[in-house]
Design a protein around this nucleic acid. Sequence first.
DNA 1: GTGACTGCAAATAATTTGCATTACA
DNA 2: TGTAATGCAAATTATTTGCAGTCAC
Lengths: 143, 143
Amino acid sequence: MQLDLEALNTQLSEQGYKLTRQRRAVVEVVTHAHTRFSAADVLAKAQRACPDLGLTTVYRTLEILEELSAIRRVHLDNGCEGFAPASAEHGHHLICSRCQETIEFEDCNLTALLRRVSEQTGFTIQQHWLELVGLCPKCQPRK
Amino acid sequence: MQLDLEALNTQLSEQGYKLTRQRRAVVEVVTHAHTRFSAADVLAKAQRACPDLGLTTVYRTLEILEELSAIRRVHLDNGCEGFAPASAEHGHHLICSRCQETIEFEDCNLTALLRRVSEQTGFTIQQHWLELVGLCPKCQPRK
DNA sequence: GTGACTGCAAATAATTTGCATTACA
DNA sequence: TGTAATGCAAATTATTTGCAGTCAC
């Protein structure tokens, strides 16, 4: 399920955000991304369509897109953060450690686990963060 | 299961690391931590015992402790990273969103989930990252 | 026309590195 | 004593903010 460029532009507009050239360029890149990305990654790609785009605007736009749940924060290898397209209401990401391909999965049936941990610790669990790393089919060694 | 101060010092020593005053102070703080912490947190606490400790050394020591699996990286709310004591070979952390109390749990029975995701996507899953956030018993509102 | 949006440059913040000095084993 | 470890200051890197000019609606 890929993010829809038009739908996202419409949503921005409906929320009162102006559809500037810069925002369109960022949204274009983000909706077509099939890997996780950093703000700098977005800048590099979006500048092809919009050369005068600045990094500040990328940060500001990513912030908006996160609010709209169009993207979600993920972790990059260096420890700091990046973003990935998010279509599901509640989803997690699976990232290829070799080619960085990133896909979203909605199946997070952690109910039993959460209940056990909750019972054992007395904690009330509010949120969970789950991210999987592996090798996508293309990057797996041939047998 | 708490980290053992002496055991960790011994381990450092056996690995060829010198037991300097600074390292002892950092290890002391880390082994007694019951919340996740940043490098700056460690500096502040460890300086009580070792006033001339520098932040650089804290970073360097945390790096070593991570290699030794005595601590594990976790995520802080601001998006960047922190550390938490790690005793289990493979564990995850449960963090109180109010008081920051952090405990480790080893139960991560994600086998079924991992298998499903793997089957659906064709990915070979190598690692998983799981972190839970909730309210510890002390911080839960009274009924 | 006007307020939201922009880029730039400067400010923050977190972390890393170079280097001369110090201290553990 | 020799080498690893240290603190400091400077360098990097990531991100945020202030502000004057610009543009979508």
